[in-house]
Design a protein around this nucleic acid. Structure first.
Lengths: 245, 245
DNA sequence: CGTTGATTTGAATATCCTCAACGTGCGTGG
DNA sequence: CCACGCACGTTGAGGATATTCAAATCAACG
């Protein structure tokens, strides 16, 4: 399954897509010394292909790797003893998955591809060793987990304090921003997840999500055709998040 | 404000209370070489006293330190642009605060003492430097952030998939476990936060929390007298979390 | 004691959910 | 190429859960 055959150093000019997660604007700026970039790349072991619906890793499994999305998209969900599932995150290219296993060395979520996708494997041992040598990589890792924690807190806010329509608006705007950060169109994109999956993530039922999509559509905030979304009135969508105005 | 005057090495026999967060059962077992323990202690700079209601750090502030609770308790909350507040966590002795700032070097929550409390300051630079030299400390830090991420996902499950009574039951059982892990009674304890604060954390209104406390009380699950709680039927409380049984 | 803030309790309401029916798009196979 | 079936999505009506508003009670503290 190894699909990174060329030594890292030879492709310095053309960044490997997996570097994205180490170069996000929130973290280190691009432009590290080449030697360091080479070593950072070396912790990326291989690229695995995962078909739509297939599981990348499961809760309870011993954890030896973290992953970054190379192409496609994934969902992560937790399952309670009585079988209820809650999606705790969607992942698009450049984002890391599996970090919550850092402590127990056990995955805590089931992570499944939403479409045919590819993920980069990063060996945990190699990552830990290399971060010790390479302060810039250490900092990068801290950035990533810090931002994961921030995102989790934002999700908590959404679930705990926002109304259904605000949650959906935030979801759409957040996705839009993330696409933009990856160089994709922020205004027009395809949802890779079902209404039910969106609902699970937002703590809503699929019917509620559907109703709100229709409501946003007829209010002229977005154009919806199945999973194809176009944001037509970003400002109004953003204003939903500030109810008093 | 410095209240750790004695060199770390001289008090090896009697662990400093702040070590707890570096020795949790979920992370490294106690019993590191003394030299390492000494260096780990050295990253703990000082102990700050915070009076009830005072702020330890605020969202948006530049972040140079993380903190661990030495004594007392804290709440962390996020505030939206329109002024709504959502408590995203309570912290008891041995737990770390401020880690979500790792990425942006900016705090993302307001963290406030629920009672007169003490927190240990840990300089971020010192922590980063020392973790590079000390694999055991690096691993410890990874454990802590990993467990933070797991906890955040559990909170997301609670907020997104559980009913009000289940959320409160989980809250009480979770607190109970954390007290137990710190050597305190798991069955009888004092809530340091108001009904409103519990409600904020659980995504409920204070009246709902109050009603459920009363309901649990009359159902014989717990004994409630203001903020004094005694868990009288742990099993029944736990069964609330598995609705089908 | 009287004031203040926190908590409890009640009644009416709103939001979101459940159940159910219907529509739409897409792939498969005739 | 069209028809069928199936998964997904939409829409409606009624109901449940948690909220809002309001009032009463309790505890702490000067």
């Amino acid at each position: 399954m190894k699909s990174t055959p060329t030594p890292a150093a030879t492709q310095m000019d053309k960044p490997h897509p997996c570097d994205v997660c180490f170069q996000s604007k929130f973290c280190l700026p691009i432009g590290l010394p080449q030697a360091e970039m080479g070593r950072i790349r070396d912790v990326i072991q291989a690229t695995v292909r995962v078909q739509k619906g297939e599981t990348l890793f499961s809760a309870g499994q011993p954890m030896t790797k973290v992953y970054s999305v190379h192409a496609g998209s994934f969902k992560s969900y937790v399952t309670s003893p009585d079988g209820r599932e809650q999606i705790v995150g969607f992942h698009i290219p450049g984002e890391m998955m599996g970090l919550e296993g850092l402590g127990q060395h056990t995955y805590f979520t089931d992570t499944v591809a939403l479409e045919d996708s590819e993920a980069c494997e990063i060996d945990l041992r190699a990552l830990e060793t290399t971060t010790r040598d390479l302060p810039s990589l250490q900092h990068q890792l801290h950035c990533i987990v810090g931002n994961k924690l921030v995102r989790a807190q934002q999700d908590q806010f959404s679930l705990g304090s926002m109304h259904a329509d605000e949650r959906l608006a935030r979801f759409l705007l957040d996705l839009s921003e993330r696409f933009k950060a990856r160089g994709l169109s922020p205004d027009e994109f395809v949802l890779r997840m079902s209404r039910e999956e969106i609902g699970s993530y937002l703590g809503l039922k699929l019917e509620t999500v559907s109703r709100l999509m229709s409501k946003f559509h007829s209010a002229g905030l977005i154009h919806v055709a199945q999973r194809q979304i176009r944001i037509t009135d970003r400002r109004a969508l953003a204003e939903l998040l500030m109810p008093q105005t």
